[in-house]
Amino acid sequence: MGDPSGGAAPADWPLYEVFIRSRSGLEHKHVGSLHAADARMAVEHARDVYTRRQEGVSIWVVRSADIVASDPADAEALFEPARDKVYRHPTFYAIPDEVKNL
C-alpha cells in the first residue's frame, strides 16, 4: 500500500459499511466501516475490528458505494413538512384525567 519513495498512492480496497446485531431480537445497527478485498474478508475483518468484546451475534457488510443516501441540502424539503404536524403525536390531544385507558 505505502510507497515510501513518494509515488502516487495505489487505490484502496473497496470500503464496506458494517452493521452488527448485538443480540437476537435486536436490529442490525451501523457500527463503522472498513476496507476489504471482498465481502468475505469484510466479514472477517468486521469480526476482528468490531466484535472483540462479544458486541455481536451477526454481522452485515454492505459496500459503501451501494448505499444511496439523501442529500443534506434536501434536508429541509424532506423533513421540515413533519415539523408542524404535531397532531401525529398522542400528546397533542387533551383528554380529561378521569378518562382511563386512552
Binding site: G2, A9, P10, D12
Partner: peptide, 29 residues
Amino acid sequence: DEGGHGMYLYSAAETLGVSRAQLIEQLLS
C-alpha cells in the same frame, strides 16, 4: 485493541476525503 483503534480512526479520517492509502503512505514516508 490499539490496532483496532487505529482502524476506527483511519475510517473517521477517510470520511473527510483522504484515502487510506494516502494516510499509510504519509506514515511510511
